[in-house]
Design a binder for these strands. Structure first.
Length: 642
DNA sequence: GTAGGGTTAG
């Protein structure tokens, strides 16, 4: 039983909240307490020893025949069964030197890929923060040899690939002081791993200042980075600027990247125009160009257009592959058209293509979304019978569906299965568990899952915490919710506006204006951007305590801040005006939203009816009811209100 | 560089 048996009893609140990704593993953290490290279960005992040593501890090394570190093993240190720390350290240093020597030997033969894999393994074990000591080792032991600059360059490159950016930059600065030039491939790696930040431009400036020739990937990374940072206009300008230069050969990936950025921003029409641009530059769209567009069209529900492009792709001589089919199949799943999903699966089989795990996952998702988890589970059995093992994505879909149906017994069965086949739970899978337990009101269990994922180095994100927070709020445990939020903020974790919105809403529901306002001020101090949800919630809290002038003041504030009020904003205010017996103000709000072309929904209409009926203005109520019919709003809700 | 899973407000 994955989660039942391993949970420690949860006796205290608040629990220990996840800290930012620690420099050492949980095994090392546990060992720090006991000064013992289990070499058989620890992934990287040497690294852990070093980390402990830095903290002034003198850890002992458990021989590999021990399987567990537990309280009883503490005494085992006395029987001489442990390796001495000094011995371990010397062996470690020797091993490092031997590996670097191997790298230099490989460099002399120009075997770059192999250096890359040796260093990747080594740096993976060494962890971040290891650059200074490795550089020292390189500098002291491998001077004045031709192969040196290659090894240094690959070292910086691998640090960048492993996203140990500070280490990569450290190696580059050392190389600079030793008059060695990094290769464009290393700069590319660094830029790629910094693509979510503005730092890419500093690296690009450096490349240009040093006169290093760009690779075909360099511009692609920069355009991708601008798209990822939602700077589409800049991406387009940069693209035009680059392609205006004679020395730059057009490269299909760069076109596709820009197209992908445009698609993600919802600019499908502009993205489509890139297809003709590709031809204009003398290139041909490849399968990525087509599938990127098809994917976007499917996501938008434009299946006809997607199918047309699918045919164009085939006409263009590009063989349809499983990915292209899966994109289309998923498009039909999104529309809930399972019969079409089956048709396409048959079609792909007819074309000689084998549905893969992604195809089956889409199929399972479709069944689950229709509420037929049994059918989803049946597909799972069929897939397994065909010799395909499900991955964590497919299991997540099923877990989520089972939680929604409250089939907790089946949830635990699947968790056992996941454990039995040795699959690792990832961030989404854990988040589904946390959400599921929260929805069932089992918040303690949710918190235990949170602790468990942290101990496995899977760090919760905003979504994960959101579930816990909203669950605490729903239970009215505002003190605990606030404590949880404060801890997230205090531990320097990324806290976004959604988490604040959830807790503000919690305060709003219990009518605690002070709590809500305190958080509002905190948001302003932190410089987070308020969303319409924040404002709606604040309006709600003032409505709740019957301060309607203040509530309406927020509505004006929203507009001043350039945010568009929604149907929720107006409905909240209207409901409050009805409650206060002020039907005229309610109608004023109603007319205002109509003028702004904000579509009223069922709840809005029910509020209007409630107000008018309360005042006995039945004719007006009937008139609005007719409008409601015309605009196609369902009447069911209204009847229940009357 | 293209495909499949989780989330907030009335």
């Amino acid at each position: 039983m994955l989660f039942r048996s391993k949970f420690r009893p949860f006796g205290q609140f608040p629990p220990q909240l996840p800290a930012p990704k620690p420099a050492i593993s949980s095994a090392a953290a546990a060992a720090a307490d006991e000064l013992l490290i289990d070499s058989s279960t620890s992934k990287n005992p040497v690294r852990e020893i070093l980390t402990l040593a830095k903290r002034g501890n003198r850890p002992l090394f458990l021989p590999s025949n021990r399987t567990r570190v537990d309280r009883q093993s503490r005494g085992a240190g006395k029987d001489g069964n442990f390796m001495d720390w000094e011995v371990a350290r010397t062996r470690f240093e020797d091993a490092r030197l031997a590996r670097l020597e191997t790298c230099h030997a490989l460099a002399r033969e120009g075997r770059l890929k192999e250096i890359n894999s040796v260093l990747k393994q080594m740096l993976h074990e060494e962890g971040s923060g290891s650059a200074p000591s490795l550089c020292e080792l390189l500098q002291n032991n491998f001077r004045d040899c031709d192969s040196c600059s290659i090894v240094w360059d690959v070292l910086a490159n691998v640090y960048a690939q492993l996203e140990m950016i500070h280490d990569a930059l450290y190696v580059l600065s050392k190389m600079d002081s030793l008059n060695m030039q990094a290769s464009i491939s290393t700069y590319d790696s660094l830029m790629y791993n910094l693509r979510h930040t503005d730092m890419v431009w500093d690296i690009y400036k450096e490349i240009r200042a040093r006169g290093v020739t760009h690779s075909e990937y360099t511009y692609n990374i920069l355009i991708d980075s601008l798209c990822k940072q939602q700077r589409l206009q800049d991406a387009i300008s940069f693209f035009q600027d680059v392609h205006g230069r004679k020395e730059v050969k057009p490269f299909i990936i760069t076109f596709n990247t820009l197209m992908s950025g445009l698609c993600n921003a919802g600019l499908v029409e502009v993205a489509k125009s890139i297809l003709s641009l590709i031809l204009k530059y003398g290139l041909r769209p490849d399968r990525y160009s087509y599938t990127t567009l098809i994917h976007r069209l499917c996501a938008a529900g434009s299946m006809e257009e997607a199918l047309k492009l699918f045919e164009d792709m085939e006409k263009d001589g590009i063989l349809l592959d499983v990915v292209a089919y899966n994109i289309l199949i998923n498009g039909y799943r999104l529309l809930g058209l399972m019969s079409e999903v089956w048709k396409l699966i048959k079609m792909m089989i007819f074309q000689g293509l084998k549905p893969d795990l992604v195809t089956y996952t889409i199929l399972i998702t479709g069944h689950c979304e229709k509420g037929d988890v049994e059918e989803g589970l049946r597909v799972r059995r069929e897939v397994i019978a065909r010799g395909i093992q499900l991955n964590i994505v497919a299991y997540s879909v099923l877990l989520n569906a089972l939680f929604k149906k409250g089939q907790i017994g089946e949830v635990h069965q699947l968790l056992d299965e996941i454990e039995a086949i040795g699959l690792h739970m990832d961030l989404v899978a854990y988040s589904i568990l946390i959400h599921g337990y929260c929805k069932l009101g089992e918040i303690e269990r949710a918190l235990q899952v949170c602790q468990m994922m942290c101990s496995k180095q899977v760090m919760p994100n905003s979504f994960t915490h959101g579930a816990t927070l909203s669950s605490l709020c729903k239970k009215g445990m505002l003190v605990e919710a606030r404590w949880y939020l404060d801890n997230l903020v205090g531990s320097g974790l990324m806290v976004d506006i959604i988490l604040y919105n959830i807790v503000i809403d919690g305060y709003a529901k219990i009518g605690d204006v002070d709590g809500a306002l305190e958080l509002y001020e905190q948001i302003l101090k932190l410089g987070l951007s308020l969303t319409i949800v924040t404002y709606n919630t604040l309006i709600f809290v003032f409505c709740k305590i019957e301060k309607l002038t203040v509530a309406e003041h927020f509505l004006r504030q929203i507009e001043l801040n350039g945010i568009n009020p929604t149907v929720v904003t107006y409905t909240t205010l209207m409901d409050a005006f009805v409650g206060a017996g002020n039907t005229d103000s309610m109608l004023r709000m109603f007319n205002e939203m109509i003028e702004k072309a904000i579509m009223p929904n069922v709840i809005t209409y029910s509020v209007v009816m409630k107000g008018l009926c309360k005042q006995g203005r039945l004719q007006k109520a009937i008139d609005i009811l007719k409008d409601m019919h015309i605009s196609g709003v369902q009447i069911i809700y209204f009847e229940t209100i009357i």
